[in-house]
Design a protein around this nucleic acid. Structure first.
Lengths: 139, 139
DNA sequence: TTCTATGTGCAAATTAATTGCATCTAACCC
DNA sequence: GGGTTAGATGCAATTAATTTGCACATAGAA
């Protein structure tokens, strides 16, 4: 995705366009996978951004729905661009990650909500699989 | 579940039966819902257990498959007895939690794994829904 | 009962995330 | 373009969550 699009994306969500934000979005978009705050911070060597600003901007992007927060049981949250909805399988031994498309959650929501007493809408979900990758399962 | 069963459960997994472990299991079993380490620790007033031991025992129970770890986006992991497989809907505003049964993940695994290049088995998964409860959505 | 592998508590260290505050700047106005 | 201001940033310090080290205690086996 081009820089110009990040510009538009930010404006559309009422966020100011700053170098820090463009740099964070650029890193997140380039790395096709979930990154922790720390990893994003390390990847910003061309445009150094304080780790606090990384936290604060991820929070802002999250609120705007531009990124998704993912818990891969690594001790800290990971983040990913929100477009191209998908989920992950994580190896509990070596940590290797594989994406998979075709989220089964969307389709199941109506059924789940119809049975719910307290809720009538769902805006987000977590759905990650954990197991052993082929490599680790043969060791 | 009775105390005797926790005894058996622990032995079956090669874990020593101690007061601390029985107390933690008892708390987790009594509260029908996910609890954070801190919450479990606070609930152990009758049989005080150091918070470090709570951490260590939850880790042991987790390894034994006796409890499940759940991320409800509260800043710290929550834990729940592993029996009665189910998932949760969480209100992003007030934090109210509702369980739902009928996990759709199990049924979808075969399909997901058949498409996977790196994985051939999955031992666990996360699946939680986030939205506004009826109360919060009318405010 | 004695022995040993495990478990426990306390203190301290690490790591993750948040907050306060002075300074800076993007975006809006003229 | 220059002035204004709400919002963004960096740095320092704090708080919260989790882990580690170590001496002592104890469950369970012999």
């Amino acid at each position: 995705m081009g820089k110009k699009n990040f510009n538009i994306m930010l404006r559309e969500h009422g966020l100011k366009v700053t170098d820090a934000r463009l740099a964070i979005l650029s890193v997140l978009d380039a790395v096709h996978g979930p990154m922790s705050t720390e990893e994003i911070h390390r990847a910003l060597k061309k445009t150094p951004v304080d780790i606090v600003s990384v936290y604060r901007n991820l929070e802002a992007f999250l609120g705007a729905g531009m990124v998704r927060e993912i818990d891969l049981r690594r001790g800290s949250s990971c983040y990913e661009m929100a477009h191209n909805h998908h989920h992950h399988i994580v190896c509990v031994k070596c940590g290797v990650i594989e994406k998979f498309d075709g989220c089964i959650v969307e389709g199941a929501l109506t059924g789940i909500l119809s049975k719910s007493k307290k809720f009538k809408s769902v805006s987000d979900h977590s759905f990650e699989l954990f197991g052993l990758c082929k490599k680790c399962s043969t060791l």
